[in-house]
């Protein structure tokens, strides 16, 4: 007998997993487009620390000379990305789930404690609800990045008809650079996300699939339970 705690609603789980292939396809087709004018780099003056992207990277993934293909994919799957994102956002707002994600007054301070804890520097965590302070900040940031992708994308897609939007992001070239930068940030988020999920373990990961986490109940509570176990009731409910 275990205590089952329902953590993620069904809608959140579906929208989360739908986003995974959609975002993968958007980033992939984005790479095919970016290659045709691959001007961004990390460095100063003539010194380049990291070119986006090295020739070997492009070659390994067979990226060169696929601009038309990349555009045709990007401008189709953009709809799915946008629709999924809008539904997710509306769900958060109307279900009240946003309360678990939006950072609160203490989040900034507490997120440092979470980081120190995760880096094995400090023991113990402040009490938390569904997400800890660092998660709240990260997940809120990722929603804002999604919105940023949508808007900078629109700005470079229709820079004349939506010239006000393009101007808002500092003009066409800035908007393109921002669109690219957010992509890199999303990829970094994804990498940290994966590492954190691995460290958090099976119970946490399973919750994004099944919706629930389980908790062992100690012997004391178990003996204190009524002779008629609760689970028989829930089982019949389920079968009904």
């Amino acid at each position: 007998m275990k205590k089952v705690i329902h953590k993620h609603p069904l809608a959140i789980r579906w929208l989360h997993w739908l986003n995974f292939p959609i975002l993968t396809i958007m980033i992939w087709s984005g790479l095919l487009i970016y290659w045709a004018n691959d001007v961004y780099r990390l460095g100063w003056g003539d010194r380049t620390v990291l070119k986006f992207f090295p020739g070997s990277f492009n070659k390994a993934l067979n990226i060169p000379f696929r601009l038309a293909e990349g555009m045709s994919i990007h401008f189709v799957f953009m709809w799915l990305f946008a629709i999924n994102g809008v539904i997710y956002f509306l769900y958060l707002v109307f279900s009240g789930e946003w309360k678990f994600i939006a950072p609160n007054r203490n989040s900034l301070k507490e997120s440092w404690l979470v980081i120190l804890h995760d880096l094995r520097i400090k023991r113990g965590l402040p009490p938390q609800k569904k997400y800890n302070a660092a998660q709240r900040i990260a997940y809120t940031a990722v929603i804002i990045m999604g919105l940023g992708m949508l808007l900078t994308g629109l700005a470079i897609y229709k820079p004349v008809q939506l010239n006000w939007l393009c101007a808002m992001f500092g003009g066409y070239e800035w908007a393109r650079a921002e669109h690219f930068t957010i992509t890199i940030l999303l990829v970094l988020f994804f990498l940290i996300h994966i590492i954190q999920v691995i460290f958090a373990g099976w119970n946490n990961f399973r919750a994004m699939v099944t919706g629930f986490e389980t908790e062992n109940i100690d012997a004391k509570t178990e003996t204190a339970m009524p002779t008629e176990p609760i689970n028989t009731k829930s089982e019949t409910d389920e079968q009904a």
Binding site: M1, V4, H6, K130, V209, N231
Partner: peptide
């Protein structure tokens, strides 16, 4: 709080997980 809790057997948990 928005957390629903219930008690389930290992078998039920495995089934739902599957």
């Amino acid at each position: 709080m928005n957390k629903r809790e219930e008690l389930l057997t290992e078998k039920q948990i495995r089934r739902r997980t599957f």
